[in-house]
Nucleic acid binder design. Structure first.
Length: 569
DNA sequence: GCCGTTTTCGGCCCGACTGTTTTCAGTCG
């Protein structure tokens, strides 16, 4: 029995119970049990006494036992009998929750979208106690929209939204401080909406400025403390602004950064000390409200170190405090190993890229333009690669604060051969191999290509190993556990491509790589100097799996890196 | 349904908002 099946089953039971209008604490008990199982690192067979896990008691353990014994859950089957499947998608309709749906089902026989729409049109909904004309109208409107709007937007789409709003807010004089919050601040791959916390003493002026300066499709709410809009972009984006005073700023930022589970943990901690956390501050046992100058101070009030947003997830992070010091920070990064210039499809010259890297404070980097196969990207022939050598050497001779290495991002060809000969590769300091073509080949063929690359003695790293685009395309579906095995065996680096389009390897795969001690390079794959900013996203993404600093190649000293790339020469 | 270094019963994170009410339930983040 797969652990994930058990987790999924517990979550399904919670959903069905909710649809029956069950006691919300009972519902969340099943969700908590699922979450407890998920955050427990051990596999099923390693867990001796399942009820010893906090959050799993008699009832949920019985469900798990049932699943282990019979491969299915009688509890879930019963619920599936009792509750129509068609009600599940209705949980997504804004304004409808378990209680209301239970009532609609029991009193009007609503079982799916169509029957709910009919009930609305017949005016039956507004006749129910607790419902009214406005509710009925709203449900009707939302049912029409159902499915037309993307549920979650990928980080790369939201990044440009956040940058744009940052610019707008920075120019409003009444704004004292502001920051993005929510799951975007936690560097999640996708988010449902974007949250901003804004400190001001003039909420009306800020509200008006925001409403007039953004391109808005719909104003959802515009009060004194909350402005909620939908931006008019290719994909409509929901944005919430929370307007608070400067003294409330730190706790509001913490509150709206979440995650929900992290907040729950923090509040439990506060409660045990007789205190109460809200977005407005921390209420002390004597009833006075305490506020903080920064999130740092807020955590310190509870004797906690600063917990970065990226790891504020399950609440378990509060039990890993000693590991926080080992968490990689942007300052630890002193190199970028995957960069493009005008020699192939980049926007800036070697010198321009070099100066931008110096500006970043890096000590070394590798110029890795595309190889000849990639004609659309103006890939380099051996002749042009030789010419580029001169330019890189010139730069190094003039700029002593950084060392640029000569590299390539070489294509792994569809026939499982490499784009450059071994003699060519031997010439270079650093060789990246990657796949840019024939994504639809069988997994067997894809793995054959990757095997050729990873067993080549001159290849140092595999870039964006899956070829995925976040929220858009799955990539070429390699067997990643196998690839990680090979990387460990042949001493190769795997990439965490920091470009928000890619974030490849993903967190799940990074976790596997870390367990096998495979070195990871966080690279921006910059095609222009502005893209160097993606290092920030890459580092934060790595934090999400608590990726060990010593495994991250770009934290190695120049001497360490040089020794490593030359070890086979 | 789960839990207990004040508890085996009575809580379970907190507050805003909305629409329904006439003091509050349900939903949401």
């Amino acid at each position: 029995m797969n652990k994930k099946v058990i987790i999924r089953t517990l979550e399904k039971i919670a959903l069905y119970l909710e649809l029956q209008g069950e006691n919300s604490f009972k519902v969340s008990a099943f969700r908590k049990a699922a979450a407890a199982l998920e955050t427990d690192e051990r596999s099923l067979s390693e867990i001796e006494d399942i009820t010893a896990i906090k959050g799993i008691g008699k009832g949920t353990a019985a469900v798990i036992e049932d699943l282990l014994q019979n491969g299915q859950s009688a509890v879930l089957q019963e619920l599936e009998q009792a509750v129509p499947k068609g009600l599940i998608p209705l949980m997504k309709v804004p304004g409808l929750g378990g209680k209301k749906l239970a009532k609609l089902y029991q009193e009007l026989g609503v079982t799916d979208v169509d029957s709910l729409l009919q009930a609305c049109e017949a005016g039956q909904v507004q006749a129910l106690a607790g419902f009214g004309a406005k509710t009925e109208e709203k449900i009707k409107k939302e049912l029409m929209n159902l499915g037309s709007r993307a549920e979650r937007l990928p980080i790369w789409q939201l990044e440009s939204v956040v940058l744009e709003i940052n610019e707008v807010l920075a120019k409003i004089v009444e704004v004292e401080r502001f920051s993005v919050a929510g799951s975007f601040r936690r560097t999640n791959e996708t988010s449902k909406d974007v949250d901003f916390i804004v400190a001001t003493t003039a909420p009306e002026a800020v509200r008006e400025a925001i409403l007039s300066q953004l391109v808005i499709l719909e104003i959802v709410a515009a009060g004194d403390t909350k402005v909620s809009v939908v931006l008019d972009r290719d994909e409509p984006v929901s944005v919430d602004f929370r307007l608070v005073t400067l003294s409330e700023y730190a706790t509001a930022l913490h509150h709206f950064t979440g995650s929900k589970d992290h907040n729950v943990r923090m509040r439990q901690l506060a409660k045990a000390q007789g205190k109460k956390i809200s977005e407005y501050g921390v209420e002390q046992p004597d009833g006075t409200m305490m506020t903080f100058a920064s999130e740092q101070d807020f955590f310190a009030h509870f004797d906690l170190p600063f917990i970065p947003p990226t790891v504020r997830e399950s609440g378990k992070e509060l039990e890993r405090l000693e590991e926080l010091q080992q968490l990689v920070q942007l300052d630890d990064i002193i190199s970028d190993l995957h960069l493009h210039t005008t020699w192939s499809d980049g926007a800036h010259s070697v010198a321009e890229m070099g100066h931008a890297l110096i500006e970043k404070g890096y000590q070394y980097a590798v110029i890795t333009d595309h190889s000849q196969y990639l004609k659309v990207a103006n890939g380099l022939t051996p002749e042009r690669l030789a010419k580029q050598k001169v330019e890189i050497e010139q730069f190094n001779a003039q700029q002593l604060s950084i060392r640029l290495f000569r590299g390539t991002e070489m294509d792994i060809l569809p026939d499982a051969t490499l784009d450059f000969s071994d003699e060519m590769l031997h010439e270079l300091d650093f060789v990246i191999a990657s796949i840019h073509s024939s994504f639809t080949q069988s997994q067997e063929k894809i793995m054959e290509r990757l095997y050729t690359a990873i067993t080549n003695p001159y290849v140092h790293m595999i870039a964006h190993p899956t070829g995925r685009i976040v929220g858009q395309r799955g990539g070429y579906n390699p067997d990643i556990p196998q690839l990680i095995e090979w990387a460990a065996e042949h001493g190769k680096i795997l990439e965490l491509n920091a470009n928000p389009y890619r974030l490849d390897l993903c967190t799940e795969h990074l976790q596997l790589a870390m367990e096998k001690n495979v070195p990871i390079a966080i690279n921006t794959d910059a095609h222009a100097v502005e893209h160097l900013r993606f290092m920030d996203i890459g580092v934060q993404y790595a934090q999400k799996v608590w990726l060990k600093k010593e495994l991250i190649v770009n934290t190695w000293t120049l001497a360490q890196f040089e020794a490593w790339i030359r070890r086979n020469k």
